[in-house]
Amino acid sequence: MTGGSSGRSGPPDASGSCATIAIYSVKGGVGKTTFSANLAWCCAVSSGHRTLLWDLDAAGGSGFLYGLEAKGSRLAEEVFSRERSPDALIQHTAWANLDILPADESIRAVDAQLAQIGKRKRLAKLTEELAGTYERIVLDCPPVINELSAQVVRAADLVIVPLPPSPLSARAFDLVVREIAGNTKRHPPILPVLSMLDMRRALHRQAHEANPSWPSIPYASVVEQCAVHQQPVGALAPSSPAAQAFGRLWDAIDRKLAERH
């Protein structure tokens, strides 16, 4: 699957303002990119929102899951320095309403760059400008605690935290909450979600029983196949439990975001 130029067709409807959803964790390997790619697909395809998936992780996983690569190696830096408009880097996916701003290796230097330029809301300003075109912006965030993560918090209307099912899940979530609360006086709502939940495993059952109100996404081999086929699970296996779980999670998120207006 390859991507061409952005297929956007004008500004979003005036009936609703843009919302920025950050998928964030201080730990790697928890399903963050899988959440980002699949929730963005649900947002665009199921809800029909004009959606931008912005990959802020140097691993570039979100773009890869859609068969897209960055057009250069130093472009992310230029977006944050305002030497280049993000519009020039956005690519259209095979699905209507869904575009991607892929990551490149210069994302690694953005933290130092932001500290140097001293613009604490640079990411928030960029998302505000993109809101002229998109109704929803999904940020696939790097697993770090630094200036970039602080900027993510200032830009986001909602932070989703994927958590591995273990007795340490609540502790890990508390760490994220403290990090977010330390970077803004009025932090956005934070939603913990158990990822890769396998109810056959005792520790997973215990984590679920300890946090019964948390949504969950089940462990499923079809989710791993997303990277092989470079398609989201909703397109690859729409009737699978994983696809249905992502759909339910997105529907709940979308209802909450709609209640803001």
Score class of each variant (00 low, 15 high):
Gly16Val: 05
His187Ile: 03
Gly10Met: 06
Asp254Arg: 13
Cys18Asp: 01
Lys256Asp: 05
Leu175Ile: 07
His49Thr: 08
His204Pro: 12
Val193His: 06
Ala220Trp: 04
Gly132Cys: 03
Glu147Asp: 09
Pro102Gln: 09
Ala202Leu: 14
Ala19Pro: 01
Ala76Gly: 07
Lys125Ile: 08
Arg178Gly: 01
Ile160His: 05
Phe64Glu: 11
Gln91Arg: 15
Asp87Cys: 10
Thr20Ser: 13
His208Gly: 08
Tyr66Phe: 14
Trp54Ser: 00
Arg136Cys: 12
Glu105Asp: 06
Ala70Val: 04
Gln113Pro: 01
Tyr66Ile: 03
Asp251Ser: 15
Leu98Thr: 08
Gly67Val: 01
Val152Asp: 00
Leu39Ile: 04
Tyr24Cys: 00
Arg178Phe: 00
Gln230Arg: 15
Val152Trp: 00
Ser213Pro: 02
Ser81Lys: 14
Val144Gly: 00
Leu197Thr: 02
Ala22Leu: 06
Leu139Ser: 03
Gly63Met: 08
Ile145Phe: 11
Asp174Leu: 03
Gly63Asp: 08
Leu114Gln: 04
Gly61Arg: 07
Asp57Ile: 12
Ala94Trp: 09
Gly72Phe: 06
Pro218Gly: 04
Asn146Ser: 14
Ser169His: 01
Val79Ala: 03
Cys43His: 01
Ser221Trp: 03
Glu209Tyr: 05
Cys141Glu: 03
Ile217Ala: 04
Val222Ala: 14
Leu163Ala: 07
